[in-house]
Amino acid sequence: MSRSRRPDPWIILLATMSAGPVLAGLVFMLLYSTGQIGLLAHGFTLHYWRVVLDDRQTWITLAYSLAMGLASLGASLLLALALQAALGARLRRGALRGLLFVPLAVPPLVAALLSVEVLGNAGLLARLAHALGWIDQPGDFPSLLFTPSGVGIVLAHMTLVTPFLLLLLDRLGRNARVADLMQVARTLGASRWQAWRQVCLPVLMRAGMPVLSVYFIALMGAFEVPLLVGAQYPAMVSVLIQRRFSQFDISTRPEAYVLASLYACLAMGLLLALFAWRGRREAGERAA
């Protein structure tokens, strides 16, 4: 609780450093994209907004980013849940305990590089397939990278996200004493599957939902992985913004700002909705 009426300078700094750049950037992008500032400023216009909003690629890119975020998180979560159910306490024993932290030390750029070297047509998996006599040449190996389906993006993200989620679920499970709850369920006659599905899973999902939601927003705006292993079309939103922004022809710059503004509003809307939902949930729990 604030004790003095004078504004706390550290809270002012906090608000300035976190919301300041984001809001200032958003205002700048709105002004630039409506022709009021910048090299292409010729007075107020909604021309660039109309161009971007009428462009099918805009909506495809936003939907594709949503889909890639969901697919990456969903697949990683499923794998993490399956591994947690299969390995249980073994996750905290032996070499695996330390090795699970290794992917946390890998930046997305390196994960993308590794994906090319492992999943590419001449990568390690293709070489293994050749050694086993399954394929004759690189072209025979199924294309996993640079495809519109985004399999490469999802797989690269899975290598980064799954170990993190596995550690997170393990920590959440211990915090919520899931093992004890499952033991009670088993004592009351539930099968192992029933205890996991009806006790463990709901507890973990409820506790993990806020973290997972923030992670989803971050994955939606991923840049390095889709830049290196994604398809030329459709592109994820960060890649398309950077591409339009960095083109030699500066006339595409206002369009990049329109797209960036749209995405910023979408991401901020999702984040604020998440925090509002959390606030309501906490208030409901306190009232109960």
Partner: peptide, 29 residues
């Protein structure tokens, strides 16, 4: 110690939500 800790936490997440690319292009000018 702040009464509106939740709201301030939401603000702290804003840069991560809009992504470094969006923040980068918007601040470059």
């Amino acid at each position: 110690r702040h009464a509106r800790q939740g709201r301030l936490l939401a603000l702290l997440h804003l840069p991560f939500a809009v992504s470094p690319v969006v923040l980068g292009v918007s601040l470059l000018y």
